[in-house]
Design a protein around this nucleic acid. Sequence first.
DNA 1: TCCATTTAGTTGTATTTGCAACAAAAAGTA
DNA 2: TACTTTTTGTTGCAAATACAACTAAATGGA
Lengths: 150, 150
Amino acid sequence: MRDQLREIGMIARALDSISNIEFKELELTKGQYLYLVRICEEPGIIQEKLAELIKVDRTTAARAVQKLETNGLITKQDDPHNKKIKRLVPTERGKALYPVIIREHEHSTDVALAGLSDKEAEQLLRLLKRVRHNIEGDWDAVKKGKKRNY
Amino acid sequence: MRDQLREIGMIARALDSISNIEFKELELTKGQYLYLVRICEEPGIIQEKLAELIKVDRTTAARAVQKLETNGLITKQDDPHNKKIKRLVPTERGKALYPVIIREHEHSTDVALAGLSDKEAEQLLRLLKRVRHNIEGDWDAVKKGKKRNY
DNA sequence: TCCATTTAGTTGTATTTGCAACAAAAAGTA
DNA sequence: TACTTTTTGTTGCAAATACAACTAAATGGA
């Protein structure tokens, strides 16, 4: 049975659920952690790229980012060469949360990969990267209104 | 870099997004397909188990199921031996949608696994099942209010 | 240069999602 | 048996999510 995608769905929902519950005590509401880590890792990234990276709707990212700014975790900075884009940069408070988020994530990874050898974990990562790459094109296309034939 | 979980998150969001867009023309609103397939595959399943299977909050499942019933895709049947539970069963209309959902899912699987050998696809599935199994305990525990230490 | 297209961002609106808090049946225990 | 706990289900609320539709800047041709 080719149940790879179902397994992926189950794992993703379970982990997201856990993270959301655990980050609530850091005043991070649902999903926020996703955006904050990426902005910390790639300061200056713009909203559009962020949405693409996370695989979430542009407008969802817009509102998540809005909220992060309101809560003082990031700022939107104007670009000197491009009046349209806004570069997202973590504040000190935002940066301070980064290691906490990473620690949680590392723990979940420990739990998730328990019992797998280093080789298996690496193999899993390699395969997942290929799957992600395979699916990215369709995501983009369908998002932009293209119809898939099957 | 142990990015397995991030990859899983990206893949899951991308695929869910695609499915939601594609199933809209079948009058299936967001997420509905997830529940309907499971009910079709395991008729008589109860809400609680369904939530556990899908890895979603009990109340979310409750409302999704409610909507499926309202839309005439499933019925809630009383159990003769247990007054509390309600067995979920697909209607004819619900059953008719099943192959359509599966076809989409198969196509996404084709796209996702493109370029992987049979051996690699099998290996991926095996590893994912182990990861899912590893994470299930934590999901259950955290959902029920238990704190993880890390 | 001018115009069409793409990119980036926003807001309105409808829907889903999930935590809290509750009720009641069932199961477990003394 | 009487009791406590667990299981299953619901509803109120607040929040996130995403489709539509819209601006405006940037880019890419003729």
